[in-house]
Design a protein around this nucleic acid. Structure first.
Length: 271
DNA sequence: CTAACCTCCTGTTCGC
DNA sequence: TGCGAACAGGAGGTTA
């Protein structure tokens, strides 16, 4: 499940290699989450200027406009001058002068959407409500604390929603809360400055560490150059219900919040 | 406005 | 062993 670290690792794995490439053809497979929003043919001849990331979206800047790319939960990208013929789950290929960028996505929750510019309605709809970038300077404690105070929802769901801070998906939300010693069910506004600060730090620490380790490869995630990630081996709680807490030995518990699973240590995360 | 629920999809896991 | 049901989940959309 690509969260911020996996998307960022993917970005880094092909951004340099594709920069400056000219799009020579486009192949579209089965429908993804949203329609492309332009004729595939209209992309031909455009140059790839840069690859940026916003939350879990990758932004492929073109001469004219940009492609918003989302990996959904089972998506992965590959970029290589020499890719095999497309398989059943390869739903979007951009053939360029420097290689082919391919979206592989069995569950097709992912998307490739064209927008004329970042202010375009399509882009605004997808990027407009996003929260702060946790690994950038815009993520400050005062802003984070203000966001916490504004919500009575359980902190786990506030993190997942991405309106306050982006990129923290289901796996990292559990890990972050464990590190901060906060129970997933605590209403956001009941988190005071001291624990708030710990949470703020934990978000940065966990995400930065995950990027460093190449993300988490739980099922089959890999970056665009085919490398697997290794953060999953450092998971303290995710997927470990019933197993002993690495810190205190208590059995990790699993609970459901908004149809999502949350994992926590009942002793290390008392409130 | 918020919060709860729904929806998209298919590979994997589980129970009988 | 086989088969269907349940599950996994990012995030926009809908409903209350």
């Amino acid at each position: 499940m690509p969260e911020l670290p996996e998307v960022e690792v993917t970005r880094r794995s092909f951004a340099q290699a594709i920069a400056g490439a000219r799009i020579e053809s486009v192949r579209v497979g089965k429908p993804l989450r949203w329609p492309l929003g332009c004729a595939p043919q209209s992309l031909v001849g455009q140059k790839v200027v840069a690859i940026r990331r916003r939350g879990k979206y990758l932004l492929v800047d073109l001469d004219s406009g940009l492609l918003l790319l989302h990996l959904g939960m089972s998506g992965s990208l590959r970029f290589s001058p020499d890719l095999p013929p497309p398989g059943a789950h390869d739903h979007f290929d951009v053939m360029t002068s420097q290689g082919t960028l391919r979206l592989h996505d069995p569950r097709r929750f992912g998307a490739v959407v064209y927008a004329a510019d970042e202010q375009a309605a399509v882009a605004q709809k997808l990027l407009g409500g996003l929260g702060m970038e946790p690994l950038s300077d815009v993520f400050t404690y005062p802003a984070f604390e203000a966001g916490l105070k504004a919500s009575r929802a359980p902190i786990k769901q506030v993190l997942l929603a991405g309106r306050l801070v982006v990129g923290v998906g289901n796996i990292y939300a559990s890990e972050v809360l464990y590190l901060a010693g906060i129970r997933p069910t605590v209403p956001a506004q009941r988190i005071g400055p001291q624990r708030g600060r710990r949470l703020f730090d934990a978000i940065r620490t966990v995400l930065a560490r995950a990027v460093e380790l190449g993300g988490s490869t739980l099922k089959d995630f890999s970056s665009a150059d085919g490398m697997a990630g290794h953060f999953q081996h450092e998971a303290n709680v995710y997927g470990r219900d019933g197993a002993p807490c690495h810190h205190c030995g208590s059995a990790i518990q699993l609970l459901r919040q908004g149809q999502r699973s949350s994992y926590f240590c009942p002793r290390c995360q008392r409130a």
